[in-house]
Simulated assay, not measured.
Amino acid sequence: MKFMGHLVYGSNPFVPMSLFATIVPVITLGSVSKRWMIPGWGLGWLVTCDPSGLLRKDKIAESVNKLLVYSPFPPTLIQGAIPQILEKTTQDFFSKTINILRKNLDICYDKLKEIPCMMIPQKPEGAFFAMVKLNLLLLEDIKDDMEFCLKLAKEESLIILPGVTVGLKNWLRLTFAVEYSSLEDGLGRLKSFCQRHAKKYTLTGSTAVDQQIHVEH
């Protein structure tokens, strides 16, 4: 389980999986890049909750420690900053972060509803990104989520992660952990891109006939 409990702002409370460790051992992962919102800082931790001792008995923890020997250490700059980050970060920092993310999510959710080819099945209640379903039937010249993201980057200089990279074809993973002005600008570019590539419908069938009769009369 990836530790994102501190980034919960929906109506449902966060329930740590460690509560169920008496049923099955739980391994929790966390990182500086998530907890402190510092992308690219490859430094994290792994915590085991194993009251029955199964992980120790099967030497799982021992195997993990052996793997760490082959992993490169984080850059010196990051190692030097960690003590200050841990000691001087107050709860106020996390509270403000959650408030900002909550407001950004509301903006993102409302703006995406204005784009017909996109849908968020459920409003996120945690983390800092939303999974968005892409309706390709409403787009003219885009075959999948990868092509959508490549054209978006080329035409609008806007980067969105295609869902296929995380196992969800024709979805998008859109982050809203940015400043309000950047988020608003990005969503505006996204809407313009979708409008530009939207299918152009022509009147057919009874609708065309009805209009012809109306004109003749």
Rank of each mutant, 00 (worst) to 15 (best):
H217D: 10
I213N: 02
A153M: 07
L86Q: 06
K88G: 01
S95R: 09
C194M: 03
S31R: 07
T175H: 07
T97S: 12
I159M: 14
L68W: 05
I120K: 12
Y109F: 15
G40K: 07
D106V: 00
P51L: 13
L172G: 05
T207L: 14
Y9N: 12
I98C: 13
L112A: 00
D185E: 10
A21D: 07
D145R: 03
C49L: 06
V26A: 12
R56T: 13
A21Y: 04
A130I: 15
F148D: 08
L54T: 14
A127H: 09
M37H: 08
D58F: 14
T202Y: 09
V164W: 11
T89Y: 00
K34H: 11
I27V: 13
L29W: 13
E114M: 05
P74Q: 03
P25H: 06
Y180K: 15
V47R: 15
S11K: 14
N170C: 08
L67R: 11
S11I: 06
Y180D: 15
K111C: 03
K66G: 05
V164M: 14
V69K: 05
C117P: 01
C117L: 06
I160L: 15
K191S: 15
L112N: 03
I100R: 10
K103N: 04
M37Y: 00
L152H: 08
L150S: 04
I115H: 00
I142R: 03
R196N: 08
K191M: 10
L203F: 03
E62Q: 13
T204G: 02
C149D: 05
M131W: 12
F128P: 01
M118Q: 04
V166Y: 09
A21V: 02
K154Y: 06
K59P: 01
L134E: 12
L190D: 09
D106W: 00
L187H: 05
